[in-house]
Design a binder for these strands. Structure first.
Length: 188
DNA sequence: CGAATTTGACCAGCGC
DNA sequence: GCGCTGGTCAAATTCG
């Protein structure tokens, strides 16, 4: 797969981020579909999962992105377009959740953060288990769930919960020589 | 040897 | 109240 994100008409779209050779075009995705804003998802105003996939299927690897709720993954009963939203049980109060789907052979996308797996469960209506990860940074409480799509195993559904309160280690690794240089120059 | 992963047990919410 | 299900814990195991 090449890294260049184009819209179906072949035009370049907005800013993109590279995750494990799967480019995600945040700007383009959020502007390109009425289904994908977190707020709309929270209100339950969204199409079915199938509709979203169909809508986004023309993009390179990312086929869906947006807020996600209990039952969204794996064809559960409480699909978002049924209007009723069931928030999690022991879930922290208002931790923002965002989910996206990528076509990838890799289950775990390298997003620059370090994750420790703390559980895995078989999910109903899916042949593939769901894996649970926590950010290894001691002050950071971000979690993510990874699961292959029930109907299309080539699609990996990644759900993030919470916001990192620290920069990604890969980013810091990349920037640290530059920061050192800046510190040196500011000392002159 | 410390860190990360695996995996069965446990717990809480929900529907019937 | 009970069973089902999803999410988390923690001991055992594996890995670097």
């Amino acid at each position: 797969m090449d890294g260049d994100i184009m819209n179906p008409q072949g035009h370049h779209m907005g800013t993109s981020s590279l995750i494990n050779n799967c480019e995600i075009d945040w700007d383009g995705l959020f502007s390109g579909s009425s289904c994908l804003s977190n707020i709309e998802m929270e209100k339950g105003i969204c199409g079915s999962e199938d509709q979203v996939i169909a809508a986004m299927g023309d993009y390179n690897n990312v086929v869906n992105i947006g807020g996600i709720k209990e039952g969204d993954i794996g064809g559960g009963k409480n699909n978002c377009n049924k209007g009723k939203m069931v928030m999690g049980k022991r879930r922290s109060a208002m931790a923002p959740r965002i989910a996206f789907q990528t076509r990838s052979a890799e289950d775990v996308l390298d997003d620059g953060y370090r994750w420790r797996k703390y559980g895995q469960k078989a999910v109903k209506h899916s042949n593939h288990p769901r894996s649970y990860y926590r950010c290894t940074h001691h002050t950071c409480n971000v979690k993510k769930q990874i699961q292959r799509h029930a109907k299309d195993p080539t699609i990996v559904v990644t759900t993030y919960e919470g916001i990192h309160n620290h920069p990604s280690e890969k980013l810091m690794e990349t920037l640290s020589p530059l920061l050192k240089q800046l510190q040196f120059l500011s000392g002159i």
